[in-house]
Structures are given as C-alpha cells and as structure tokens.
C-alpha cells in the first residue's frame, strides 16, 4: 500500500486549459517527497485535487488504500494540507482557527485545545494564540497553516511551497520540524522552488513540467545523473605560470580564483592530489551552483527542446 497513489490524473479547467496531462505518482508510506517544477507546471493543481479543493477531470487517487472518490471521509481523515496561499479567516485568532479545524475533523474541543497548545507551541506561535491572525507576519501565517494541517494528526502531510517568503532562520527551523515530523512516521510531500530545500529534506523527487511528470526517482539516483560538477577554489597565492593542471579543464579568474570541472572520470581526491603535487594551497572550496539546480534546468530545458523539435 502507498501513502498516496495517483493514476492518470488529468485536469482540464473550465476555460479549457489542460493543466494536468495524465500524471502518475506513487508515494511510499513514511517517504519524504518533493514535487518540483517551474511556475505554472501544475503542482498546485495536483495537490488541490488530492485535497478535494479542485475537481479532477479523470484519473484515480488513493490515500492509504482509500479511494478518494468512493471513501472520501477515510481518505481526507489521513491528509493534512498546507496551501500555497493563506486561506484561514484572517479576522480570527490562531487558537480559534486550530480548534475549529479540529472540530471539522470530529475532534472534541477538549482534545483540540490540547493539540492546539502542542502545535502552536512547537511552531512558536503560542504567544500569538489570541492575536487577530491578519496581524501575523508572513512567516507566522505559514507556520499557523502547518499547525492547522497537523491538528488532526494526519498520516500524510502535503505542503505547497511552505517556505516561500520565509527568512533563513525560520526556514531552517521549519526544515528541522518537518524532518522530525517525517522521522516520527508522517509521510511528507512538498513543493518548493528552492532546490537546496528539496536536496536537504527529500529522499524522492518528482519533476513536473507543463502538466507532465518528466522525472520521478530517488534523490541520490537523480544526483548521480549529474556527471560533472564545477568547483570554485580560492587559492592562497596567485597561480604560478608553470603550474600544470591540464589533467582537468579549468578557468582562472583574477589570478587566484580557480574554477575546475570535475567529470565522472575524476574525483575531488584526484584534484587535491594534483593540487598538492603542484604545491598549491587552497583557502576554500565551494560548488559553483547547486547541483540539483543545474540538473533541474537541464531536465526542463531538454524536454522543451525536444518538444520544440517535434513541433
């Protein structure tokens, strides 16, 4: 049994726009998946269909074995959703929002109050519990929606760009929170435009573009596809004229910044052996760009190039 099983999901909006062209996705119980794709790819559409907020045109969805069409109560009971846009009553207080949401899931008020305290506490919102939520900051609003999504303790948590517009510190603490939640057994799916976030958190990745899933694999396998990587080295001294680094292809910037391409025939160890041999001292080393970012751009572009050639 999968936590979420999507088969041949298709969506045509009322204006005739075909947003999803038959996508398939299996999410294992306990997994941590990311759904990536450029703006307008169809991520939110897919998520909103799974959460019963958008009507599907065709296809089949099962949540922990419960068919969403025939057993909606059981399926919905096991999903918690954090939407891309704020959708709580901004005139209400965080505590009320949580307790009412719990009520919609059939949770008694006394239990709902305990849980609200727990989740508002964990997401550092307890001292805001009686504020009008309109006055919360953007990051607090996102955390409030995470607390709300967890109030019925769902087995599957779906987050649509949870860290958009959140500062670095809060983002890190949200990552930790999500990692802990996943470690406790909750299956998580999230969409993000920060590839670093996907790489950091998720064990599986699906890339969607123009309503089609173009890649669906384990994160490690995807990163393995990346055959070469560029490193930027800061050198202590300017590179000497007689240094021989020709084993690698490289470019020198400003005398002491070295950009080196490490391909699949070499390892970083090889590079450092060579640098040692040449007695070149390195002050620091970093990736030129996020590896996943490069891969993402390549996947999305190569697909677009192919479709252009075909047309």
């Amino acid at each position: 049994m999968s936590a979420l099983s999507i088969k041949n999901l298709t969506k045509t909006y009322a204006n005739g726009f075909l947003a999803l062209k038959g996508i398939d996705l299996e999410v294992d119980v306990g997994g941590f998946y990311s759904l990536l794709g450029p703006n307008g790819a169809g991520k939110t559409t897919a998520i909103r269909i799974v959460c019963s907020l958008v009507e599907k045109s065709a296809g089949n969805i099962e949540v922990f074995g419960y068919n969403l069409a025939t057993h909606p109560e059981e399926a919905k009971m096991n999903i918690g959703m954090v939407p891309q846009e704020v959708n709580f009553n901004t005139f209400d207080t965080p505590l009320n929002i949580l307790v009412n949401q719990a009520g919609f899931y059939g949770i008694k008020r006394s239990i709902a109050l305990q849980r609200a305290k727990k989740y508002l506490g964990e997401l550092k919102l307890w001292d805001k519990k009686d504020d009008i939520s309109r006055n919360l900051s953007g990051g607090m609003k996102r955390r409030l929606m995470i607390a709300r999504a967890l109030i019925h303790e769902p087995e599957l948590l779906i987050l649509d760009e949870p860290t958009a517009g959140v500062d670095i510190e809060i983002r890190r603490s949200m990552w930790k929170f999500l990692k802990d939640t996943n470690a406790n057994g909750t299956t998580i799916i999230l969409t993000t435009h920060y590839l670093e976030e996907a790489e950091n958190l998720c064990r599986n990745i699906a890339i969607i573009d123009e309503g089609v899933i173009i890649e669906n694999t384990r994160m490690i396998d995807l990163l393995k596809q990346l055959k070469q990587e560029t490193f930027v080295l800061s050198l202590e001294d300017n590179l000497k004229k007689d240094s021989n680094l020709n084993e690698f292809s490289y470019t020198l910037i400003g005398g002491n910044q070295l950009e080196v391409l490490v391909d699949e025939d070499h390892s970083i160890n090889d590079l450092f052996e060579l640098l040692n041999r040449e007695k070149i001292k390195v002050l620091s080393l970093r990736n030129k760009s996020n590896r996943l970012e490069e891969l993402f751009m390549r996947l999305v572009h190569s697909k677009n190039d192919i479709s252009k050639e075909n047309s």
């Binding site: 119980v29 306990g30 922990f64 074995g65 109560e73 059981e74 009971m77 096991n78 009320n96 009412n100 009520g103 919609f104 899931y105 059939g106 949770i107 008694k108 019925h152 303790e153 769902p154 087995e155 406790n184 057994g185």
Partner: peptide
Amino acid sequence: MTSQRKIHNVNVNLNLIAFYTIVRKE
C-alpha cells in the same frame, strides 16, 4: 514507532462534532 501508527478511521460522532463546530462559530 512507524509500525505502531494507525491509519485514522472515521469517528461516528464526526459529523455531529463538525456540525456543532459550525454552529458555535456562527
């Protein structure tokens, strides 16, 4: 931990509590 977790089943009072929640809110 994971193996002990149970998939949620629908509670019989769900709709009653949900109804009451809306009324109270209103």
